[in-house]
């Protein structure tokens, strides 16, 4: 059984329009891969499809997580099996406190009849919040309700740290962050890097990759991976722009 998040020839459409057109990508455990691409190339669609959003229909291909068919599972099952998506636009859940939300998410991972140790839970949460420079008042506040853009993204990383997934996809986690928040978020991700965990970092800008240094960089265009390289590819893209890739593609077509 391969220890990877393995996407093979993935085709997916929304309302009859095909967005992913045969995307293949393998993220071995322990590696950080980045996907860069212009707006509309299908980056966010890829993350939603992997998480199981019902608006997206997978028409062909597969996604396996450590050999297990991810697409065959319900949304919540995927999460409990170790898949995590940090949302680009995290939802607000009024009236549900951040602490209760995290507790419910962890509780859902326990066998029936087993209860979370509240003391240990709070201790763990507080230490992780400290690492993300999050004020303790966020535990009592409603999930993302009235949070600034940066606070929402930090909250996503807190959830990731609490749920300790095997594979995490970060969907444009850098968008809307100032440089200080970006550093804090990146630091949170870097602390989670381990031989036991794989990351897929989706971003439009190279800036994030200064702080979360990827092992592999992919360029996505029109629903496919069109170029793969090391971290220097991100710098090249930043310097030459996405037109460089599209022109190169046109030349070889």
């Amino acid at each position: 059984m391969s220890q990877s998040l393995n996407i093979k020839n993935l085709h997916a459409s929304v309302e009859g329009t095909e967005i992913l057109k045969g995307l293949s990508l393998e993220i071995p455990k322990g590696e950080v891969h980045a996907i860069m691409g212009p707006n509309g190339s299908g980056k966010s669609t890829l993350s939603k499809v992997m998480a199981g959003h019902e608006d997206y229909e997978v028409t062909e291909g597969s996604v396996h997580m450590d050999g297990v068919d991810l697409l065959d599972m319900d949304i919540d099952e995927r999460s409990r099996a170790g898949f995590f998506l940090a949302f680009q636009y995290p939802h607000e859940i009024p009236g549900v406190s951040n602490a209760n939300f995290l507790r419910a998410a962890l509780q859902a991972r326990l066998p029936k009849g087993e209860e979370i140790d509240a003391v240990a839970f709070y201790k763990d949460m507080y230490s992780k919040m400290d690492a993300l420079s999050m004020d303790r008042k966020f535990t009592a506040r409603s999930v993302n309700d009235g949070f600034s853009g940066g606070e929402k993204k930090r909250n996503e990383i807190l959830q990731m740290m609490m749920l300790e997934p095997h594979y995490a996809v970060l969907d444009e986690t850098d968008s809307g962050l100032d440089i200080d928040a970006l550093k804090i978020v990146a630091e949170g991700v870097n602390r989670m890097r381990s031989p036991e965990r794989g990351f897929l970092v989706i971003t439009h800008y190279q800036r994030l990759l200064d702080y979360i240094v990827p092992d592999v960089v992919h360029v996505m265009f029109d629903g496919r991976i069109v170029k793969t390289g090391d971290k220097s590819l991100a710098l090249e893209l930043e310097a030459k722009g996405y037109d460089w890739v599209t022109e190169e593609l046109a030349a070889t077509a």
């Binding site: 998480a51 199981g52 959003h53 019902e54 319900d74 949304i75 919540d76 995927r78 999460s79 409990r80 998506l85 949302f87 995290p90 939802h91 859940i93 939300f101 419910a104 998410a105 859902a108 991972r109 959830q159 749920l163």
Partner: peptide
Amino acid sequence: EEIFYLQARGIPA
């Protein structure tokens, strides 16, 4: 979308 968000954290629908 709200339900999707909670489900994506492992909480059943």
